[in-house]
């Protein structure tokens, strides 16, 4: 599905990623864990075409490195960025409608979206109650749900989620993760970046640990969760 090979990314002279290899298979949830500044967001932004890179990114065996962001999105790689980025001056439903540009293109009238809307409202019923509300006035959790729902409106073939739990109350985090698992079960592979490592390792199949722009460790999520160094550094478990 997605194969990243020897990915190097820099901002000006500041090299941030030093040769990353990473795979996401059909139907998987893959977790990417790392401390602040490790380069997780940079990796997602590299995949979605927002950072100048060298190396290869194969998506269904086509190298997408160097393509423009909207062209990559139109292939079905949809990123839900860190900090949600809802369109603040549009209503919930208008935000969701804009999410369909990715598979239906730019057009004068939005057309009949009821099927897609029903689908995402079924996953996030709370958005339906708020559908006429301007997005800036939603709570943080609702904005996160909207950001994910908007991506779903575009029928993603691969979902890139950047810290969906950031700033949310534990109960809402629980809910968001349940939805992510549900979305994945319906057939969408997910690359999940998380600070909340415990949660992320529980729902994912495989995991990568990123440290200062390098993959330090990778493997089955269960094994990763058992690893001493990982437990100490990312799960807050003190070694006896």
């Amino acid at each position: 599905m997605l194969r990243v090979r020897n990915l190097v990314a820099s901002y000006g002279y500041n090299q941030v990623l030093h040769g990353i290899d990473l795979d996401v298979g059909q139907d998987e949830i893959v977790t990417l864990i790392g401390s602040n500044g490790a380069g997780k967001t940079t990796l997602l932004n590299s995949i979605s075409g927002h950072v100048k890179i060298s190396g290869e990114i194969y998506y269904q065996d086509v190298n997408i490195a160097g393509k423009s962001p909207h062209a990559i999105a139109r292939l079905g790689l949809l990123q839900v960025p860190e900090g949600r980025h809802v369109f603040p001056g549009l209503t919930v439903e208008e935000n969701l409608a804009v999410g369909t540009v990715v598979n239906r293109g730019m057009r004068i009238r939005k057309g009949d979206l009821s099927q897609d809307l029903d689908f995402v409202y079924q996953i996030f019923p709370r958005l339906k109650e708020r559908r006429k509300q301007l997005a800036w006035s939603l709570s943080g959790g609702e904005q996160q749900m909207l950001a994910i729902a908007r991506a779903l409106m575009g029928h993603p073939k691969l979902l890139l989620l950047d810290e969906p739990s950031m700033g949310l109350a534990p109960l809402i985090v629980e809910e968001v993760f349940e939805r992510i698992v549900e979305i994945n079960r319906l057939g969408t592979p997910v690359l999940l970046v998380e600070q909340n490592a415990t949660m992320a390792l529980r729902v994912s199949k495989r995991a990568y640990i990123l440290e200062r722009g390098r993959v330090k460790f990778s493997g089955d999520s269960k094994e990763v969760a058992q690893d001493e160094r990982v437990r100490e550094a990312y799960l807050g478990v003190i070694r006896r």
Binding site: S48, H70, P81, H85, F87, P88, G89, L90, A97, V98
Partner: peptide, 28 residues
């Protein structure tokens, strides 16, 4: 009231996000 208008507003409000939902930002 039109969809293209909402697309233009979305681009105006958050260009980075607009490109992530597949809007050709230059065109908009």
């Amino acid at each position: 009231r039109t969809f293209i208008g909402h697309i233009m507003q979305a681009t105006a409000q958050d260009r980075y996000m607009a490109s992530l939902v597949g809007i050709p930002v230059v065109f908009s």
